[in-house]
Amino acid sequence: KKIKIDLKKGPEGLGFTVVTRDSSIHGPGPIFVKNILPKGAAIKDGRLQSGDRILEVNGRDVTGRTQEELVAMLRSTKQGETASLVIAR
């Protein structure tokens, strides 16, 4: 099931960490939400869960991207702006 979640970045950030699983010589594996932090946009919104697979960030497919690339995409969202995620659960 795909779910679109918009998180408005506040002073505590987006409020979640990510982890890559099953990376191989063929490229990075899928990226999942690792933890929801006690402060930040994710816990206020309440929909994002540990174990959700991140498919898109701000309309860009993240398949084949590294964890570092995904984190850079999320960090490029400025405070007060919205990060738009599509996740699979």
Results as ranks from 00 to 15, higher is better:
E69M: 10
L85R: 02
L48E: 00
K8Y: 09
E69D: 12
S76E: 14
D22V: 11
I54Q: 00
G51Q: 06
G27M: 11
G27I: 12
E68F: 02
R65M: 11
K78I: 08
T77E: 11
Q79C: 09
R60P: 01
D52I: 00
L14W: 14
I25M: 12
S24A: 06
K8P: 11
G59D: 03
D52H: 01
V86Y: 09
R21F: 09
S50L: 13
L70N: 02
G46K: 08
K39T: 10
K9Y: 15
K4N: 12
F32N: 06
I87S: 02
P28K: 05
K1F: 09
K78M: 08
I54Y: 00
S84C: 12
H26F: 09
E56G: 09
V71G: 14
G64H: 06
I54G: 00
V33Y: 01
M73K: 04
K39M: 10
L74Q: 03
L14T: 01
G59V: 02
L37D: 09
Q67V: 04
G80N: 14
I31F: 15
L48Q: 01
K44A: 09
R65Y: 10
K8C: 04
M73Q: 06
V33R: 01
S24D: 11
D61R: 07
E81S: 09
G15M: 00
V19W: 13
I25K: 09
L74V: 13
R60D: 11
G40C: 03
K9I: 15
K4G: 08
A41R: 05
L7C: 05
P38Q: 07
K78P: 09
I3Y: 12
R89C: 02
K34P: 03
H26W: 04
K8M: 12
V18H: 05
A83Y: 12
G15V: 00
V19H: 15
P38F: 08
M73A: 06
I43L: 06
T17S: 12
G13F: 01
E81R: 13
T82F: 09
T17L: 12
K34E: 15
L70Q: 07
K8R: 07
E68K: 06
L74G: 03
S24R: 05
I3C: 00
K9H: 15
V86L: 10
M73R: 05
I25E: 11
K1A: 04
G51R: 05
K78T: 11
K8A: 14
V86H: 08
T63L: 07
L85I: 08
T66F: 05
S24T: 06
G51E: 12
G13N: 04
N35F: 07
I43K: 12
S50H: 15
L74R: 02
V62F: 10
R89M: 01
K44Y: 06
V62W: 05
K8V: 05
G59P: 01
E56Q: 12
I87Y: 01
V86I: 11
A72G: 09
I43M: 05
E56D: 09
M73N: 04
R65F: 07
Q67L: 03
I31Y: 14
G46W: 02
K1M: 02
R65P: 05
G29T: 08
R75T: 01
E68S: 09
F32W: 07
K1P: 15
I5Y: 01
G40N: 02
Q79F: 08
G15R: 00
I31P: 01
V71F: 05
N35W: 06
G80K: 05
K9P: 15
M73E: 03
V86E: 11
K2Q: 03
N35E: 14
G13I: 00
G80I: 03
G40M: 02
G80V: 03
S23G: 06
V33Q: 01
G13A: 04
L74W: 08
K1V: 02
G80L: 05
I36P: 00
A42P: 02
L74T: 04
P38C: 10
M73C: 07
S84W: 09
R75A: 10
T82R: 10
I87L: 14
I31A: 14
E12D: 10
K2P: 02
K9V: 15
K9C: 15
R53Q: 14
I31R: 02
G51Y: 06
A42M: 02
K44T: 11
D6S: 14
A42Q: 01
G46M: 04
V86P: 01
T20G: 13
D52Y: 00
R89W: 00
G13H: 03
K9D: 13
L74F: 14
K39D: 13
Q67M: 03
E81A: 12
A42D: 02
G10I: 15
V71I: 10
Q67P: 04
L7E: 01
I31H: 06
